[in-house]
Design a protein around this nucleic acid. Structure first.
Lengths: 250, 250
DNA sequence: AAGTGGTCTAGACCACTTG
DNA sequence: AAGTGGTCTAGACCACTTC
């Protein structure tokens, strides 16, 4: 690999076609030509407008998608992305409150809930005694303004909330744990990085197979430092901006 | 006309070709067929191996790229990604220490440093009195194991560190501010989300135009709550996993 | 000079959604 | 039935890197 700083700049060639198309589309979007949430014209129509093939046009659209300006509804077409939800991943305030506070309409939908053995990976991650130890496992989907934006898996050690499955799970888990089981979170460990959707998540969010995603994992600890809950969230990457206000010790 | 019971074999559509190619490549990568950091065979060679066109092959490669398993060096080819750097965006520990602690080799390279007017956007962001107020502006590039992984812009209010430009800027700013100017950070505000590279950053990181990126913005506040420094980081998205250990108040 | 990745064309067929 | 997005082919030319 070359040493830092010694690369010579070459004269820049003309912009490739797909970048020029992107720039034009960005200008159209910023100019309000397409309203938030509205559907773009069909690919064939856009390709004709830019006198290019669909392949090139799609290359431009994929750039806009990666940048979060537009998104796809699988097999339906391209839509203008609404503003990102500003989201504090520490979960101090729940998803429902957060989204509502930004003037958007949140929905939480519990798709599946069961008690099952933790398994080796999860037992290690949550510091359980045995891989066979029973945990609650929830699969939930969350919506903003009628658009599914994330799939979430919650895994909870059963000992801290034995009657969990009898509760209403279409709401904030943090609130539920606090009010019904007296569980207060003391700290959490977060991991997040970009990635792609698994088939299961792509189907649930109605995105194309192999779409990119933003992965967010949160391990919550209880008052005595015991691991209580593991959240694994797969977001549509255009839907969120992670925000955090961190106070330093001392 | 359709006779009863004529085609019932398609329970599910077969996987698209580019997904099957991806799966095969993932298996090859996991099987250690290609070492970390090594170069993949040429696109034409891979396309021949999978009996498909380069277009389809590149579709599969782009999935692996989005998932962070491989990356591109512009015009040079595809390489196997090393493990992600685990990175605490609060900057309590500097980049240099963080990377080194993970057994990797960090380099910080200051590309540009100047004093200049803040400008309207920056003045607002940093709570300055006037857009013409002078700030220090640094452009730096950071490397891990000889690979450029991020471009960073630092903007600092000059009043807290008037002699900054006389210092060695190829190191940790946090450490520099503390040791030379007695500046202790009290808190920071973080924003991060996926996006794409601007041309300038793509050139500096030697990635293809329009590559995806991970954007991380950190506004640092001093002891008296005054905004001191704004960091804007553009990461190669396969290079990092953001990690955070958050303690709740109370 | 040969080979590579980056870009682009001009088609095609299919499964699916919409009317 | 028509139109759409998703997928795929079989070429091509260029700028760039490598030899």
């Amino acid at each position: 690999m070359s040493a830092p700083g010694e690369r010579r700049l070459t004269l820049r060639a003309a912009q490739p076609l797909y970048l020029r198309i992107r720039d034009q589309l960005v200008a159209d979007l910023n100019g309000g030509l397409f309203a938030t949430g509205s559907k773009l014209p069909s690919e064939r129509e856009l390709a004709e407008r830019f006198t290019c093939t669909r392949v090139t046009l799609r290359q431009a659209l994929q750039l806009l998608e990666t940048d979060g300006l537009i998104y796809r509804e699988n097999r339906l077409g391209w839509y203008v992305s609404p503003p990102r939800i500003r989201y504090d991943p520490r979960g101090i305030t729940g998803f429902m409150d957060y989204v509502a506070a930004q003037g958007r309409v949140p929905v939480t939908e519990c798709l599946h809930a069961e008690r099952r053995p933790a398994g080796a990976w999860m037992a290690t991650r949550m510091g359980l005694d045995h891989p066979e130890e029973s945990v609650f496992h929830l699969q939930r989907r969350r919506w903003v303004d009628g658009r599914p934006v994330l799939v979430e898996y919650n895994t909870l050690a059963t000992r801290w909330c034995p009657q969990l499955l009898e509760e209403d799970l279409n709401t904030s888990l943090t609130t539920l744990l606090r009010e019904r089981f007296g569980l207060i979170h003391s700290r959490c460990e977060l991991i997040m990085h970009p990635g792609i959707m698994e088939q299961a998540q792509a189907d649930l969010l109605q995105v194309s197979p192999g779409s990119s995603s933003f992965y967010l994992e949160r391990l919550n600890f209880g008052e005595r430092g015991q691991p209580v809950e593991l959240d694994q969230e797969f977001w549509r990457p255009d839907a969120l901006a992670v925000v955090l206000d961190a106070h330093y010790p001392g």
